[in-house]
Amino acid sequence: MTVTTILIAIVVGAVIGVLGRLALPGRQPIGILLTIGVGIVAALLGTAIAQQIGVDHTDGIDWIELLMQVALAAVGVAIVAAVQRRSHTGTRR
């Protein structure tokens, strides 16, 4: 894995994570690093799923793969936001 590959993964993860956050209504109490992390994981999972079902072989932008990645990022952001809310709510008394 090269430095360029890592930087591209971070940029793609950030974009996918932000799109996942935008897909959710309301505010999510998570930071940018968690958003990028969720985006990277969602991008990798979305690509793996797209390869398994055979929708990753198009000429140009793989819209179905991108949609899967954003949907997975939205689910991931929702889960992380729920955990963050629960942990912050539990410490305030």
Rank of each mutant, 00 (worst) to 15 (best):
1 M>I: 09
4 T>L: 13
5 T>P: 07
5 T>A: 11
6 I>P: 05
6 I>E: 09
7 L>I: 04
7 L>E: 03
9 A>P: 09
9 A>Y: 13
9 A>G: 15
10 I>W: 04
11 V>S: 12
12 V>G: 05
12 V>L: 11
13 G>Q: 03
13 G>N: 13
14 A>R: 04
15 V>K: 01
15 V>E: 06
17 G>K: 01
17 G>N: 05
17 G>R: 01
18 V>S: 11
19 L>I: 11
20 G>S: 08
20 G>C: 05
20 G>N: 05
21 R>S: 14
22 L>R: 15
23 A>V: 06
23 A>P: 00
23 A>K: 07
23 A>R: 00
25 P>D: 15
27 R>G: 05
28 Q>W: 07
30 I>P: 01
31 G>A: 13
32 I>F: 12
32 I>L: 08
34 L>D: 08
35 T>Y: 00
36 I>H: 08
36 I>Q: 00
37 G>M: 08
37 G>L: 14
37 G>W: 01
38 V>M: 09
39 G>C: 07
40 I>A: 07
41 V>A: 12
42 A>L: 14
45 L>C: 12
45 L>E: 03
46 G>T: 07
47 T>I: 10
47 T>N: 14
48 A>P: 02
50 A>N: 01
50 A>Q: 05
51 Q>E: 10
51 Q>S: 13
52 Q>M: 11
53 I>N: 12
53 I>V: 15
53 I>H: 09
54 G>I: 07
54 G>Q: 15
54 G>A: 06
55 V>Q: 08
55 V>M: 06
55 V>P: 00
55 V>C: 12
56 D>S: 13
56 D>N: 15
56 D>G: 12
57 H>F: 08
58 T>S: 05
59 D>F: 11
59 D>G: 01
60 G>T: 14
61 I>V: 10
62 D>W: 06
63 W>K: 13
63 W>Y: 11
64 I>T: 15
64 I>N: 00
64 I>R: 10
66 L>S: 10
66 L>R: 02
66 L>G: 09
66 L>N: 05
67 L>R: 08
67 L>T: 11
68 M>I: 14
68 M>E: 01
69 Q>K: 08
69 Q>E: 15
71 A>D: 03
72 L>M: 07
73 A>T: 03
73 A>C: 06
74 A>W: 05
75 V>C: 14
77 V>D: 01
79 I>E: 09
80 V>C: 01
80 V>H: 00
80 V>L: 10
81 A>Y: 01
81 A>Q: 13
82 A>P: 04
82 A>E: 15
84 Q>Y: 11
85 R>P: 00
85 R>H: 09
85 R>W: 11
86 R>M: 12
87 S>V: 15
89 T>V: 10
90 G>D: 07
90 G>Y: 10
92 R>Y: 04
93 R>A: 14
93 R>F: 07
